[in-house]
Every structure is written in structure tokens, then in C-alpha cells.
Amino acid sequence: MKKIITTVFCTALALCSGLTAENLDRDDIEAEIWEDMWNGKGDNGLDFPEASYKHHLLDRWLDENYGSEDYDWTEIGELQYEYKDYYRRLIEDWDFEDDNEGGWTISTEDNHYSFSLLNGMWQMTDKNGDTVDTFPPFSTLEEDESEIAGGYKINDNGADSPRVIGEVTGGTETASEGGSS
């Protein structure tokens, strides 16, 4: 009897304590889905619109859905699957054209879209020249490592005064030389 009461008590305690899985962080979800989906070339986000637009679609999907009960926000594998399914349905009738010179277009049954960079934002325009979407450039390049010079790491974020690492030859004087002239 004691075992039954103990089991019931422990089960009730676990249920009442609110043990639930927490939602994954939105930024972590975005990074995981993007890494899984994007297999293109490195791009600084300003030369070609393709990666920026595809990342914009992912952002929009997350903005519209994050936290909703339509998806399990605790399971990254499930979210990757759900986004891929959404993306495939979205683009199933799109024809992408890349001229490898920065020109990237999308043709659908009803329209033709082109992209141009204007005031630091990508503009998606339709065949009539009307802007239908705007989005920021997104770089697919990995962040550069801090520079290393002579074994010293350079943290140049512009907050400090300039410094010299290494030897300075010529054009220097000691304090005693400068004051005696």
C-alpha cells in the first residue's frame, strides 16, 4: 500500500510541478534551420540577392509562427522538417534564374520578379516595376577571425587609441633628447 501511495504522490508531484519542455530560442532555431537549408556559396549579402531573400523567407516564417501551437517549438528536427515543407510548398511553381553576375529573378505563372539593392535594402519588384517586398542584405560569410600580428591578437573595434605592435625604426627620440634642444 505504501508503494502505491508513494507512486501516486510522486506522479501527482511531477504533474503539478509544471515539468514541461521549454521552447527553443528563436535565434537558435533560425541558425539551425538556415544551416540545414542553405548550401550555397559565400556571399556578403550585397552582391547577390538569393541568400538574403531565402533568409528573409525564413525570418518571415518564424515571425508569423514562433510560439504558435501549430508546431512543436521544443524539437529542432521537427521544426526543420516543417520549414522545409512550408518552403517547398511556397516555391513549387517558381522558376529561379541566376545569371551569375548578380542578376537573380523569380518567374511564376502570373508574374516575374527581379531584385535590386537600393539604400542598403534589397527591393523585390514585379514585372510592372512595383516593389512587392523589401528585406535587408544577409551575409553568408563566416565572421573573420581577429587579426594576429607577431603573436599578439589585435582587437580593433575602434574604441581604443591606435597602437603599434612590433618594432618602430627611425624617427623616434627619447624624452631627454626632445627636451634639451
Rank of each mutant, 00 (worst) to 15 (best):
N23C: 03
T174P: 01
S17E: 12
H55N: 10
V132E: 05
Y152K: 12
Y113F: 15
Y53A: 04
E22K: 15
T134K: 15
D133C: 08
I148Q: 09
D126Q: 06
G40E: 02
R89I: 02
L57N: 10
T74R: 13
N119Q: 13
G40K: 04
S107L: 05
E92W: 08
Q123W: 13
K84P: 00
V8K: 12
S68D: 07
F135C: 02
R163Q: 14
P136S: 14
S52I: 02
E22G: 03
E147L: 06
R88L: 10
V164I: 14
S146Y: 11
D70E: 09
S114G: 15
I76A: 07
D27V: 00
A175D: 11
D98F: 03
D70H: 11
N157D: 15
H56S: 14
G18Y: 05
T7H: 06
L57M: 14
Q123F: 09
G171A: 11
E92M: 09
I5A: 10
I76M: 14
S180L: 10
E32A: 13
I106A: 03
Y87G: 00
H56C: 08
G42T: 13
T108E: 05
D110H: 14
I91F: 01
Y81L: 14
Y113A: 05
G166F: 06
K3P: 04
E64P: 02
F138Y: 15
K41I: 06
E97H: 09
D36K: 14
D59Q: 14
N65C: 05
G18C: 08
N128Y: 13
N128I: 04
G103A: 07
E173P: 03
I148T: 08
Y152N: 12
S181N: 13
R88Q: 10
D95G: 06
S146K: 07
F138S: 02
I106G: 01
D133M: 11
P136H: 08
P49H: 08
D160A: 13
A51D: 01
D160K: 10
G77S: 10
D72I: 03
D156V: 04
L79E: 01
S161E: 08
L24Q: 05
I154G: 05
G45L: 00
V168E: 11
P162C: 08
D98T: 00
D156S: 07
L117E: 07
